[in-house]
């Protein structure tokens, strides 16, 4: 697995999975030589987990959204 600066990530995805009655958000980062999968946090409802998954993905890939001058 590549380490931070030496190997740029190619892509990122978040997934929501069930875990003991909770909903967990996992972050999946794709590298040229492999994949890193990290569990970030768990949430009591699927809806909250899905919101968190969206925000975590946007932060991780710095997706361009929102007003530039906001």
């Amino acid at each position: 697995m590549a380490e931070g600066h030496t190997e740029p990530a190619l892509g990122v995805e978040t997934v929501v999975v069930t875990d003991s009655g909770q909903w967990a958000v996992e972050l999946v980062v794709l590298y040229r030589d492999g994949v890193v999968r990290r569990r970030i946090d768990t949430y009591p409802t699927k809806a909250r987990a899905e919101i968190a998954a969206r925000m975590i993905k946007r932060g991780a890939e710095r997706e361009t959204r929102g007003p530039v001058n906001g």
Binding site: G4, L27, M55, I56, G59, A60, R62
Partner: peptide
């Protein structure tokens, strides 16, 4: 927020950084 950038996913504390600093959540 930039501490959660995907390029840091290879570091041991990355998931903790995302857990704390992810925008809004």
């Amino acid at each position: 927020i930039d501490l959660t950038n995907k390029n840091y996913a290879g570091f041991p504390n990355y998931d903790e950084a995302v857990r704390r600093f992810a925008p809004y959540v």
